[in-house]
Design a protein around this nucleic acid. Sequence first.
DNA 1: CTGAAAGCGCTTACAG
DNA 2: CTGAAAGCGCTTACAG
Lengths: 346, 346
Amino acid sequence: MMKKDGVTIYQIAKEANVSPATVSRVLTGKTNVREPAKSRVQALINKYNFKPNVMARSLYLKQSKMLGIILPDIDHPFYSMIVKELERQALEKGYTCLLCNSMQSFSIEQNYLENLISRQVDGIVFLGGRINQTHPTEELVNGMNEALQHVPMVLVNGKMEGVEAHTVRTDEANGVRRLIDLLYNHGHQTIGLLGGEVGVSSTDEKVSVFRETMEQKGLTFKERWIHSSGYSIEAGERDAMHLIHLDERPTAVLCINDFVAIGAMKMFKKFGLKVPGDISVTGFDDTYLAEHFPPGVTSVNHNYRKLAKKTIETLVGLIHSEDQVKESVIPTYVTVRHSCEEWQHD
Amino acid sequence: MMKKDGVTIYQIAKEANVSPATVSRVLTGKTNVREPAKSRVQALINKYNFKPNVMARSLYLKQSKMLGIILPDIDHPFYSMIVKELERQALEKGYTCLLCNSMQSFSIEQNYLENLISRQVDGIVFLGGRINQTHPTEELVNGMNEALQHVPMVLVNGKMEGVEAHTVRTDEANGVRRLIDLLYNHGHQTIGLLGGEVGVSSTDEKVSVFRETMEQKGLTFKERWIHSSGYSIEAGERDAMHLIHLDERPTAVLCINDFVAIGAMKMFKKFGLKVPGDISVTGFDDTYLAEHFPPGVTSVNHNYRKLAKKTIETLVGLIHSEDQVKESVIPTYVTVRHSCEEWQHD
DNA sequence: CTGAAAGCGCTTACAG
DNA sequence: CTGAAAGCGCTTACAG
């Protein structure tokens, strides 16, 4: 079913009165081929619209020029933005990407991991899923280590205890600190943290940095002001609702991502709380939603292009057996919008 | 660089004291292998965590079990939603997907098309880009026809004059009619159409259905109420701005997609026009944004899962050389939200 | 049931 | 510069 026609280098060779090797040479362009023959071959290639079978080539060359990308959900703007940049960078270096949505399932994730290896991808970019488990199961760790025996891999914004993989991550901790700074400078003394999932490292890290920083600044916060029921807009609504029902509320909330921020803002509005008048809100990831959702959400940008560039560079370096730094950190920055403002003390 | 270890069927065979053919047989499971040998081989496979080289297998079998997906921009929720469903359906049938973002460039699109063929994908799903050009260049048409000689292809929500490809499309025309019905029943007599791009079939079709339907219903509309400057949120802002500056405005606008609707609503709001109080707005595609962007946007849903299912079924059917209907139409439906309401005549 | 052989479509040392 | 040969890692008729 691959090629209905099934033209090969051999047909071309025969018709051009040369050897298959010669056809191959004009195809790769690495060795010179003398003129009468060269044009004859080229003409036949055009005539048949011949496309060399890259699998056969890959088999011999032991490189497929394919990269696998494993992620939880392409629907999430955070991932679609990264994927686009990864693909762009990969293409520039001659690689084609296999996209694998694990749909939040560890078993699909594992299947994809093995599938990619069987398909001989030259390297894998791994995002989300198991590499963000604060306490991954042994099975998950083993699956990863087995994969690493077969293929170079770069983990993006994640890591695993007991797995010696290269990682590229954005400085989310600093993002959190900057956000708190910003709110602090706006006069906020009480801040909450909404969204995410306990046991997921990207949440756990943000929470612990949040605690530290609040303490350092001598700001008060209550455990009840930290509430994490997920990453979706609906989660933001739920977590905001929780806050609304407390006797004492913070004057500002950090949200784990832009979706949660949006959900929270919707719920605040529903209960008559103005954002930013009554409560300031920040997001995270700086997706296009942060820009466009009224009143515009202050958010932390991951420097997507830099992140993708470093990721692909590291992976391709590993593919070429070059030494690469074990962990690269990409700076983040805060994009300020209208969802937070000065807090007027009573 | 493919496998650092490079364990093959031959090593396993030697160590298990059987022929490579026998190893292959336990791998594929199609032929029975007698017991002492079978377990020995299986044990070795586990020991080495051996993964058969699918490229080699594909080379012999002449099927790669890979599908290519070509689309303009995965960042757009419309595409990411479709891709997710396509991938799900493909996976169910044992296919892995190669994702190709053309980034709105015809030349990248063409490169990908050829790349996918070289990589021996068993089939291609084509979305957006050239198949939505109302008047594609000859070059674009030829590129498509040449590709079709090599590989089965299904076009989603598009087609090309002079290209005999199978298509699956959603009933966008009916979506437009339903939207107009809805507004009409709400008492709107004057309706505009915002967003899109002249020369792109998905726009051109909507515009012409819009004209027809308005005429049929005896509704007035002015050419100046149709304004198309793109598909982005910014385009929605621009097109709304255009409307705002006219002396006479319609009481409702259809927007080409949810992004445009969002941009338009932002701009209306900025100029003190309430949605839906002063002007009703509808979107298209029913992405999650339509649900969550206040006040909630009435939009047309493409039945994404059905669309993806039919697409993959058709493509896989073609791969198996089965006859398939040339054009499948998936019904659309309107999801009603708060962005349109009764029009109060003065 | 199982092994030896051929073949999938390429590319590259190896000799000329 | 160019051809014959070997090999990439599999799978499946073909004989036993």
